[in-house]
Design a binder for these strands. Sequence first.
DNA 1: GAGAGATTGTACCGATCGGTACAGAGAGTC
DNA 2: GACTCTCTGTACCGATCGGTACAATCTCTC
Lengths: 194, 194
Amino acid sequence: MLKKGVERGEVLRALGEVFRAHGYESASLTLITEATGLGKGSLYHLFPGGKEQMAAEVLAEIDGWFELNIFAPLREADDPARAIAAMVAGVDQYFHSGDRVCLVGMVALGSARDAFAGAVDGYFARWQVALASLLRRSGLSKGQAQRRAEDALLTIQGALVLARARNDAGIFRRALSDLTKRLLAPPDRDLWTG
Amino acid sequence: MLKKGVERGEVLRALGEVFRAHGYESASLTLITEATGLGKGSLYHLFPGGKEQMAAEVLAEIDGWFELNIFAPLREADDPARAIAAMVAGVDQYFHSGDRVCLVGMVALGSARDAFAGAVDGYFARWQVALASLLRRSGLSKGQAQRRAEDALLTIQGALVLARARNDAGIFRRALSDLTKRLLAPPDRDLWTG
DNA sequence: GAGAGATTGTACCGATCGGTACAGAGAGTC
DNA sequence: GACTCTCTGTACCGATCGGTACAATCTCTC
């Protein structure tokens, strides 16, 4: 018997790795039973909604991790430099310095996108808002804070894609380093602000 | 009967759209016959190697398009500002301002990655080299040129992912605009250069 | 118009897909 | 130990997967 509660987290972690490794559509029930060590009986007992529920819960768990370790600290921080360094360190840790792929981004590109559109959009939206609020407190205009936060998210996603495409984790490391500098740079002197 | 040569390009174009819309693994033969208007008989006559050959040829055709319209102009250009503007315009056109996904990046994230690793890496590698060579001619150090070229590729990929995830093509447009500025900025005054 | 070769639709293949049914094993209570 | 209720392995479902076989058809050449 499953030891309630505690173990579900374990299962979700294993599920996450399967989805990351093969993508939502290609993660077959066979692959899933192997990765989790659970037969179909257990799987469908745990997730009556099937694969879709599994993926939804995995996404929710990822969201929870980021909420706790990235978004909330960003919202509550008062020292921008320290907060950004912490975010970058957290991201680097989570993505294993570029070896791990972003399941949320992956889902966004795949054909299962529509089924999880809300979760995907919410994840990025809350990240952007949290980061922008910190940037705003660091003295940036609202527009610039939003733009820089958007730039941060897209840089991380792009670095993950390119690092995987070229099989070079250094790309991710360098991108995070550059990103830190860009986020902490003084406000741009644009046409409408300078 | 197929009108030799000319038509194959048409078929590849349709194939590309199916792969882009569903991903390599989820693009079923049924989907493919619908999109191309070709039955299995024709398909396997045209591509004896099956799905894998289809994808390989689609990737090669994409590569060819970029070689002609992006990489070569980059290598041959003498005016950096103009060349970068042309690249950005070409990219914007190819990706339909963020509405179209990058098949190469998509394959890189999927489980078919290994089968096409060479093509994927080559595509990005030649892009980076071509862009870096232009940047070098514009006065950047070798290292900076390489880094900025890397940044450009990753920005484009990330913008495509985020634009799709958030269903906001504006993200792509803004990213390209920012990217242009970053590429044309004067050399960074880093520890070892300044 | 006969023959050759290229091209195509259709039936079919075994494998696997996600999902269901259900008998029975395991644990908790009395 | 008998009664629950939770949990799980296995057999099975129809559908679909990528791919093959092949006869029929088309286009061209002579």
